[in-house]
Nucleic acid binder design. Structure first.
Length: 106
DNA sequence: CCACTGACATGAG
DNA sequence: GCTCATGCCAGTG
């Protein structure tokens, strides 16, 4: 049972595609991304951590459903993520973004 | 090539 | 604020 779903790796590509379609200046949540990809938020976290294309995958645009930035495997950690968000016009104060202003729904 | 365990940046209660 | 439950991925034998 623990390995019965290994063939369903197509979900990962869906998450990446959806994330790439998020416009600049907007962010999405793990729950929303997972929902759009028909998967679970837990899986999305693994996708970002195990992603082989950080250059093509703006994981910094993904935040928690609470608006908290969460984490970042890229350079600088969450600090780098917050900086990138601000570069996109998103105010990430105290590691939090305004979802009601930047939350992107699929 | 097939099978199993460990690890994860969440969500909900 | 903490704990439990759930899904997907990567590595090893």
């Amino acid at each position: 049972m623990a390995v019965s779903n290994r063939k369903a790796k197509g979900k990962r590509d869906d998450v990446y595609s959806l994330l790439c379609e998020v416009p600049k200046g907007k962010v999405t949540t793990y729950a929303e991304l997972a929902r759009a990809a028909c998967t679970h938020p837990r899986a999305v976290a693994v996708f970002m951590k195990t992603n082989k294309h950080p250059d093509a995958i703006p994981c910094f645009r993904v935040v928690n459903s609470d608006g908290s930035v969460g984490g970042y495997s890229g350079t600088g950690g969450v600090k780098r993520k917050i900086s990138l968000l601000e570069e996109n016009g998103i105010a990430a104060k105290n590691g939090r973004v305004d979802l009601k202003k930047h939350m992107h729904s699929f």
